[in-house]
Each structure stands twice: as C-alpha cells, then as structure tokens.
Simulated assay, not measured.
Amino acid sequence: MQPFVYDGLPSRVVFGRGTLSQLSEEIEHLGCSRALVLATPQQHEQASRVLEQLGKKGAGLYADAVMHTPVEVTEHALQVVKELNVDCTVAIGGGSTIGLGKAIALRTGLPQIAIPTTYAGSEMTPILGETRDGIKATQRTLEVLPETVIYDVDLTLTLPAVMSGTSGINAIAHAVEALYARDCNPVIALMAEEGIAALARSLPVIASDPTHAEARSDALYGAWLCGTCLGSVGMSLHHKLCHTLGGSFNLPHAETHTIVLPHALAYNAPAVPGAMARIRRALGCDDAAAGLFDLGRAVGAPSGLAELGFTEADVERATDIAIQNPYWNPREIEATGIHQLLSNAQAGRRPNADSGEAQ
C-alpha cells in the first residue's frame, strides 16, 4: 500500500425520495431563518414553489443564475442578498445555480444548502469556477463548500433524457480524473469506480425510460460519489480543456464534458494503466476511452464539438489558451497532442483502443 493523505469534506448529505420536504428543518439545523432561493430562469417556477414551501423562512428568490458563473451576475445577486438581509442561500438546480451559491458564499460567508436536480456534482466540491472577461478561472477553498446537500430523487424524474445523459457523463468525468489525480487515495479510488459503474448502468436505462425511479436513484447516487471525488482531489487535463471551452467559447458545460472526456482519457491512457483498468471494469468494456464515447451515443449526446458551434478554426486558439497555466497532468502537456485531441473532439471521432488515436 502506497502512503496517502485523505481529507474528509465537512458536508451534510440528505439522500432519498421526497427529501425536499426536509428543507425547512435543514435551514433550522444551520441556525438560519431567512433563505434566498437561487435558480436559473428556466427553473424559476420550481424555485417559486420551494420559496412558497419555506413560508416565513423564505426571504426571496433570485432566478438569474447562468452558466460559468460570470462575476457580473454574482455582483447583481449580492445586491439582492444585501437588500433582503438573508442569512443563508438555497440553490436548486444544476451547476450554474450551485455555482452562484458558492460565489455568494465566498464573498459573504453565508451558509448554503444545495438541492441538485442534475448529476453535475458541483454540490459536493469546495471548487468554484468563475468567468471574468471571457476567461474562466477556478479556485479551491472550503469557504465555497455547501454545508448541506439535499438529494431528492423525485426532483430528477423530469430531467430530460438527453440532459440526464450529458449531466451524468459530466459526473463520470470527475471520477475518471480522480483515479489518476496526483493526490488520489484508496478511499477516493473506491468511490470513483463505484460512481462510474452506477452511472454507466443507469444512464442508458434513463435514456429509454426517463421515469425509471430505480435508475434515477442509482444515477443520483453515482453523481454524489463522483462529485465527492472531484471535491477531494485535484483536476487534470480534461477539466482544464472544458474550463477553456466553457469560459472562452461559451460552450454548454455538460455537453462539452461529455464530448471531451473520451479524448482526454485517450490522451492520458499511456501514463495511467491502473486507472484505465478500473474504468474498463466500471464500464464493463475492453476500451475505456471508446467505451465512454459509446456511452455518449447510447444516451443521445452530441458526438462532436462542431455540434455545439465550435469550429476547426477555433481549435488553434483553444489549444493556446489550454496550454497556458495547465493543471497538473499525468502525461506531459504537448501543444501538438492537445491540438490533435481538440481536433478529434471537434469532429466527433471515436477514440481507438486506449491509444490516443481516433477512428
């Protein structure tokens, strides 16, 4: 057994069906009484019902969260926080909403409750990615870790099938990179493999039957594990590429992760044979990178960045940005290799046999 360090993150998790009904109790558990509910415009109606459910504990609603947590949106939300004199936030939604809650917590110290309705995993991490002037930068601090996370399987039953698939593969990306992170440890490796397996078996079922409660429960369980992995260890090439594509090209978060992951894994494969073996076992396939690509096809996700509006002409600029201040990675970051990786992802080519090549 190799030496390791394991830091358990101080968050409270409430998991099950119908657990949204415990929100008021969880606010009291934090010693709070005036919650600001956060959401995106698309989830305004759902957030309004949560605010109504809170009664006197609901101070107001801010439903202008957007992708990639631009600082100007955070600044606007902070004005509302001040005007309403709130003492905590409740973020209901995916990574966009939870990211806003984190950005507010960083600047105010307010406690957070996160209620994820996707499989993004941001709720379990002390990581905040913010976009300023077209560049997305991340930081890791316990100041942005939600104090409480309420997982309610029932809230995911209406998540569209394709969105479920891309959100779930986004979660898998967290576990994949955790397996070859510089600071991985045996506990996180177990969580990562189990998280990948839970999502890999449930996402195709959800694609054919979005209301399948057992598959939804498995997927949310897997997302929790994968998010915990991301929160406990460092990120590598895959996340650097996705942060570049999201922050500088405004590509949608989950779809971008889904498309890039097989190619980033293929690039790193020669350097991480042990991680590749675990991923193959979790996916139940002979080729980890190709297996993840095929999982994307099974859930109806886009296969190439071109489908998101990313052009061949964009590859050069994205490469230049991505190789600046790179995250630690098990394989050396080479501009030529990254350019080829992004070109393969742009065109939607299928990775071949864990080799870094594409068909």
Rank of each mutant, 00 (worst) to 15 (best):
D7Q: 15
G8P: 15
P10A: 01
G16K: 01
G18T: 13
G18V: 12
L20R: 14
Q22P: 11
E25C: 02
E28W: 04
C32F: 02
A35V: 11
L36D: 06
V37K: 03
L38W: 03
H44I: 00
A47Q: 09
K57G: 00
L61V: 03
D64L: 08
V71Q: 04
E72I: 07
L78F: 10
L78A: 01
L84Y: 09
N85I: 09
S96M: 07
S96W: 12
I98Q: 12
I98C: 06
G101R: 00
A103G: 11
I115D: 07
T117F: 02
T118L: 07
T118I: 06
Y119V: 13
A120E: 14
M124F: 15
G129R: 04
E130C: 00
E130I: 01
D133N: 02
T138V: 13
T138Y: 03
T141H: 04
T141C: 07
T148L: 05
D152E: 14
D154L: 02
L159I: 08
M163C: 01
G168A: 00
A173N: 11
A173V: 10
E177R: 07
A178P: 12
Y180P: 10
R182I: 06
D183T: 02
A189F: 12
M191D: 09
E194N: 06
G195F: 02
A197L: 05
A197G: 00
L199C: 11
T211Q: 09
H212A: 01
A213T: 09
A213G: 04
A215V: 01
A223Y: 12
G227L: 08
M235T: 12
L237Q: 02
L237D: 04
H238G: 06
H238L: 06
K240E: 00
L241F: 09
T244K: 01
G247K: 03
S248H: 02
F249S: 01
H253Q: 12
E255M: 11
V260Q: 10
V260I: 14
A271S: 15
V272G: 02
M276R: 08
R280Q: 15
G284Q: 10
D287A: 14
F310W: 03
F310Y: 05
E312Q: 15
A313Y: 14
T319W: 05
D320M: 05
I323L: 05
W328T: 03
N329P: 04
R331D: 14
E334P: 08
Q340M: 05
S343E: 11
N344C: 05
A353V: 12
S355P: 13
G356H: 02
A358D: 11
